[in-house]
Design a protein around this nucleic acid. Structure first.
Length: 310
RNA sequence: GCCGCUUUAGCUCAGUAGGUAGAGCAAAGGACUGAAAAUCCUUGUGUCCUCGGUUCGAUUCCGAGAGGCGGCA
């Protein structure tokens, strides 16, 4: 599957709304984007069914008020990828335009935003069986061996990838075994896809406020029945290796020897660290209009100004 | 009240046979080629509780005081 330019987005309005976890994206949607907009959830965990509470999925009420796409489209055991996201999001855009609405990509997965904005790299999608092969190699021959192997087959990638970064080493070797070509020979786009000119809204908040919000939100998740939700997922045979369960709010339940209160604290801690990583990634995207959640007037102005050109 | 242990980085604690100190976690910054809520990298000056003594030199030894923990009364 190659990335195709979404013809339908030419000269059409498109909005990005992103920010770290807990900053208040959903609340803002309800305040400013209630009419004439449809949301494309840009979130690698909310695509999963049964992950409702821990993934901070929008409530039923919210979903009734604003149409959301790309929520509940996979089972927790299934894999998903940024490539599928871009393809599906493009299709959603077309569909939304055909209803005379404006698509708004909203979520916290910076990687998905980046690749929707710039387009996918030309490297192939992951091949499950080859990846397993590489993982076995890693297990049997060790990481030093694999890194030396990478140096041999793809010195350029080896230079960029740290020798401790097994995740990326695995992928680079996988691409080589699948195609016979080093990963570094594939191109990765560095500017916006043709005719894609979205209004990019980046929500941020002072650290103390974000911390307080995250703490309260995690507390609320437990009140809402997060423990029961996880039990249900475990009951269908889930183990920690399922991609869905690597999410914060779920992975902590697979750590051994923790009581519920320790799990709650760990979720808060991991969420804060995640928020920081998200901000690092979002900051690297150009042309972002950074606003605080309560700057409603400024956001409205940016929006009106942007929409007036269509 | 007496006895013992303890006081070092935001937290938990190492350590210096006397030459002003370092791990883990936290924190800050960064990377990101189809798993990304993933994965990984970089960054450690702190009245070594206080005051006095010994010493060329004390966070380290000695004395006193203060805080904490435990035991006995």
């Amino acid at each position: 599957m190659t990335s195709s330019t979404p013809q339908t987005t030419i000269n059409k309005p498109l909005i990005f709304l992103f920010g770290p976890t807990g900053v208040g994206k959903t609340a803002l949607l309800e305040e400013l984007f209630l009419n004439g907009f449809q949301v494309i959830s840009t979130d690698s965990k909310q695509i999963y069914r049964q992950l409702d509470i821990g993934s901070a999925k929008p409530s039923k009420t919210t979903l009734e008020k604003i149409k959301h796409h790309l929520i509940d489209i996979r089972d927790p055991s299934e894999s998903f990828s940024v490539g599928e996201f871009v393809k599906l999001a493009d299709e959603c855009c077309q569909q939304i335009y055909s209803h005379n609405s404006i698509p708004i990509l909203c979520g916290g997965t910076a990687y998905y935003f980046k690749h929707f904005y710039f387009g996918l790299p030309t490297s192939p999608k992951s091949d499950e069986s080859i990846r397993e092969e590489v993982k076995t190699l890693l297990k049997e021959r060790g990481s030093d061996y694999c890194y030396s192997y990478l140096k041999k087959i793809d010195p350029l990638s080896a230079e960029k990838i740290h020798h401790a970064d097994l995740y990326r080493i695995t992928r680079a070797i996988e691409v080589y075994l699948a195609t016979g070509k080093p990963l570094s020979q594939f191109k990765t786009p560095d500017k916006a896809r043709d005719n894609l000119n979205p209004l990019i809204l980046g929500l941020h908040a002072p650290k103390e406020i974000l911390e307080k919000r995250i703490r309260e939100r995690v507390r609320q998740m437990f009140n809402d029945g997060l423990i029961e939700e996880v039990q249900k997922i475990k009951a269908i045979g889930a183990d920690g290796s399922w991609p869905a369960l690597q999410g914060i709010g779920y992975q902590e339940f697979f750590v051994e020897g923790l009581n519920n209160s320790e799990i709650e604290q760990l979720i808060v801690k991991n969420s804060l660290r995640y928020a920081k990583r998200q901000m690092t990634f979002f900051r690297s995207i150009a042309n972002v209009n950074w606003v605080l959640t309560d700057q409603k007037k400024e956001i409205k102005e940016l929006l009106d100004n942007y929409l007036s050109q269509f």
